[in-house]
Amino acid sequence: MNEALGKHIGAAGILALGLVLSTWLIAQTFQDIKSMERTVQVKGLAEQEVMADTVIWPVFYKDADNNLEALVARLEEKNSAIRAFLTLHGFNESEVSQATPSIVDKYAQEYGQNERGFRYVAKSGLTVFSHQPDKVKLALGQLSTLAKQGIAITQDDYQNRIEYMFTGLNDIKPKMVQEATQKAREVALKFAKDSDSQLGKIKSARQGQFSISDRDSNTPQIKTVRVVTSVEYYLSD
């Protein structure tokens, strides 16, 4: 009985040792394979200039008076004049909306009771939303027509700035992604050549977010679209 038990224990020990050795060999082989794996990570940039296809133009002005009734009547007259001006420059009713006038009574504000000037200060105007930015450009060049009617359009206020937008991103996305990927591959090929390696298949790839920005502060209607693609390639000797 003792001899048989000893044989069983010996066999179990040998089996356990074999399993440990096998596990160790597998781990070592895996580590060797990982150590032999070489990759290179590169980025490719694609840029394209496009013209804005949509514009939001707040045509706003300010006015003031001590007589509220007279001020409101003048706002109505000026808004009608602005609407006529916009119609003359090719904007239809669907492109123009009138905002609710904002009127402040300075006498109703404690901090403004001692200030000199008009009691009522108003801000009013219309907003243009159009898919023809060129019409806005032409109309801007004729704002002196409104100035001669006593309507000074506010343009330096951040809230009243003209906003140009590009909405056709989906149409140019595929071509730009392709261009960015090609540029990334060119960089990877150059790296492989300089390191005496062969460029292999793609291990992973990631497309960055598209960004749309003004080309410069003087031409906000011209936009720059950018995208960066990150690609990781295998390398071999």
Rank of each mutant, 00 (worst) to 15 (best):
L235Q: 02
F210P: 09
K223W: 07
N114K: 13
L71C: 02
V136N: 08
L17V: 08
V187C: 08
E37L: 04
K123V: 07
V136M: 10
N79T: 01
A46E: 06
V228A: 05
V128I: 15
Y158N: 12
H89S: 08
A16I: 08
G117N: 09
L199R: 05
A11V: 09
L71A: 02
A205G: 09
Y61G: 00
K173H: 06
T39G: 09
K43Y: 14
F191E: 06
A52H: 06
L25F: 01
H131D: 15
S230E: 14
Q28D: 15
K123F: 01
I26M: 09
L21C: 08
V20K: 02
I162Q: 08
F210W: 07
L138R: 13
S102E: 05
Q149F: 08
T167F: 05
T224Y: 05
Q113T: 11
R185M: 10
Y61H: 10
V225E: 04
A11T: 09
N79L: 01
T167M: 00
G18C: 06
K123Q: 07
D53C: 12
S217K: 13
L86C: 07
V20Q: 02
L5R: 11
G6S: 10
A84L: 04
N79V: 04
S236N: 11
Q28G: 15
D156L: 03
K148E: 14
Y233I: 00
Q149H: 02
E110L: 09
R215S: 07
V50G: 10
Q159Y: 12
E115I: 13
V72F: 08
V231W: 00
E3R: 09
K62D: 15
L21P: 00
Y234W: 11
L126Y: 05
S80T: 01
Q31E: 11
T154R: 06
A81Q: 14
T23H: 09
I153K: 06
K190M: 12
V55Y: 08
G200P: 04
Q155R: 14
M1F: 10
Q207L: 09
Q132I: 03
S197A: 15
G200L: 01
K106S: 08
N170G: 01
I151K: 00
A122T: 03
N218P: 13
K183N: 15
K78L: 00
F91T: 06
L235V: 00
V227N: 12
G44Y: 13
G6H: 03
Y158M: 05
V50R: 04
L17D: 03
Y111W: 12
V231A: 11
V42Q: 13
G117R: 03
E186R: 07
N160Q: 10
A84F: 11
Q155T: 01
A84P: 06
A99E: 14
G18R: 03
V20R: 01
R215C: 01
Y107R: 01
D196F: 14
T154F: 07
H131W: 03
S197V: 00
